[in-house]
Design a protein around this nucleic acid. Structure first.
Length: 486
RNA sequence: GCUCUGUUGGUGUAGUCCGGCCAAUCAUAUCACCCUCUCACGGUGAUGACCAGGGUUCGAAUCCCUGACGGAGCACCA
């Protein structure tokens, strides 16, 4: 009954043919060639949500089968698992393709014995020409015996890169050229960065490795991008040889995120970091999961936005404002308020109380109030400075009138604010906490009120009229905060 | 060129399978007002979409045809 209720308010479309399986089992199959960008959050968000909807399971499988062009980054394995944890999901199992190479070899041998694959030494160009004309290459009719010998030589590393591949025998005249006799294994001279896998030279291609693993790990539902639209059809040939049933497949389009100058791709972010244009993967200007995390955005806010995109096959644009709105909703109640004045201008103050006591949170007065000593002078943001003779209400302090470079307390009642005659602004005493606020548009410096000095690292607060920030690093000279959103 | 595939307001999404309850849902965005000692939160309202043209039908966002525009694959990347 509970399951029914959950399914009712599900945010995602039903998965196909769920009734046919005892348990819905899915997988995320990242390539660990770097930490995740924002778009990567979609997979755990969606399969994690489906797992909850159907009481199913999902595994993380690192598809690290290209030690050269998509060379794995040894730190990325943990970084990715860490990102998934931050998003609020826990995989039921974690495996690495580079640990399973022998399994792929075994299946290749079986396939060869069934006559489903042949070794081929054509150059890529030659084969492509033949294939595009629906013509078989001379190696296609090789007997299984010879193929097996040559495959064992591949496994033994007796060929160099480009000299020999193993192809799956599909249908060389298939109307879709993308499906004709595709490569299952190729030689790579560069050793794998993982010690456990560094001796392998014959590596499976994605379609072979992934196809074998999906079956062996009991995956019932595959969710993947439209770039892999033909994968199921390619792998179906292997499944047919082995007599396996292919899992259900959902394809989704690409996600683009607005608001960033930086292209959302692992390689381009990496280049910018190497070039010193970004500090690291969690630079506020980087469209990465680590960056949003550092800015104080809850994983849940990202997950909700990703789930809201659904799983349609068309390409979609994700607005950062959706993530921000989700996050504001999540954190507004718990974030205390403080003042921060950016690029301030100082004014002497005359009259009025010695200290101001604005509340920590306007909706929760019982949390208490802040103590802001006024002293002889205060700082205002440039844009808030009143014209000569005009009044402005310093929040928590009272109404002042500007007379030259002095703000004179007028003693006006709060009614002047209620009637709309006077604007309420924030301010800080001249003695405050130096703040460096890191934003997507660069760093901003300013001064925060003294009580802000008590906020501990990693806490999320709101600078009134500025926005929500996460306190990142405190030291005696300066406090670094990361700007999340307004 | 061959093969897949898509097109609902600024953005995302529901509805499309089984045509009428859709003068199209919800969220976000923008604007206005209310609340408020924040330009936050909350409340109210407004703005704004069925790619185009034919056809079938009493009736089409939904079915059929044609066209336009878009995305993807045709790698010894994943």
């Amino acid at each position: 009954m509970e399951a029914e209720e959950e399914a009712d308010d599900s945010l995602l479309p039903d998965l196909p043919n769920v009734e046919a399986y005892d348990e819905v089992r899915m997988r995320a199959a990242p390539n660990p060639n770097g930490p995740w960008h924002l778009g990567h959050a979609r997979m755990p968000a969606v399969i994690g949500t489906y797992k909850e909807m159907y009481d199913g399971s999902f595994i993380v499988r690192f598809d690290d089968t290209d030690p050269e062009t998509k060379r794995p980054d040894l730190t990325a394995y943990e970084a990715i698992l860490d990102d998934i944890d931050y998003l609020g999901f826990e995989p039921d199992d974690v495996i690495r393709a580079s640990d399973r190479v022998e399994t792929y070899y075994d299946h290749a041998r079986d396939l060869i014995e069934m006559g489903g694959a042949y070794t081929c030494s054509c150059s890529g160009e030659d084969f492509s020409n033949l294939k595009n004309n629906g013509k078989p290459c001379p190696h296609r009719d090789k007997d299984a015996e010879t193929t097996l010998d040559e495959f064992e030589a591949m496994v033994a590393g007796e060929y160099s890169s480009g000299e020999m591949v193993l192809r799956v025998k599909t249908d060389i005249e298939h109307k879709n050229p993308a499906l004709r006799d595709w490569v299952a294994f190729r030689m790579i001279d560069t050793p794998h960065p993982r010690e456990e896998a560094e001796s392998y030279r014959a590596w499976p291609m994605l379609d072979f490795q992934s196809g074998i693993d999906d079956h062996l790990t009991g995956v019932t539902h595959i969710i993947r991008g439209i770039d892999l639209q033909d994968s199921a059809k390619r792998q179906q040939f292997v499944y047919d040889y082995f007599g396996w049933d292919y899992p259900e497949v959902v394809h989704w389009g690409h996600v683009q995120v607005d608001a960033y100058d930086v292209k959302m791709s692992t390689s381009s972010i990496k280049e910018l970091i190497d070039a010193g244009e970004l500090d690291d993967w969690d630079d506020p200007r980087a469209p990465t999961i680590k960056s949003l995390r550092r800015r104080g955005i809850r994983g849940q806010a990202i997950v909700d936005a990703m789930v809201g995109l659904g799983t349609s096959t068309s390409n979609v644009d994700l607005s950062m404002s959706t993530i921000y709105a989700n996050n504001r909703d999540l954190v507004d109640d718990e974030t205390d308020r403080y003042f921060l004045v950016r690029d301030g201008e100082s004014f002497a103050v005359e009259g009025g109380p010695d200290t101001a006591h604005p509340p920590l949170h306007p909706s929760f007065e019982d949390r208490g109030a802040r103590d802001i000593p006024v002293g002889d002078a205060v700082r205002l943001e440039s844009g808030d400075v009143p014209a000569e003779g005009d009044r402005v209400w310093l929040k928590g302090f009272g109404c002042v009138r500007r007379e030259s470079d002095t703000l004179v307390h007028t003693g006006d009642d709060l009614d002047v604010v209620r009637e709309g005659d006077v604007d309420v602004i924030h301010w800080v005493p001249t003695e405050g906490v130096q703040v460096r606020m890191r934003t997507m548009d660069g760093d901003v410096t300013g001064v925060a009120e003294p009580d802000f000095g008590d906020v501990s690292e990693d806490e999320l607060i709101q600078f009134e009229r500025v926005g929500f920030v996460r306190v990142d690093d405190r030291d005696d000279d300066e406090t670094v905060v990361y700007f999340a959103h307004k």
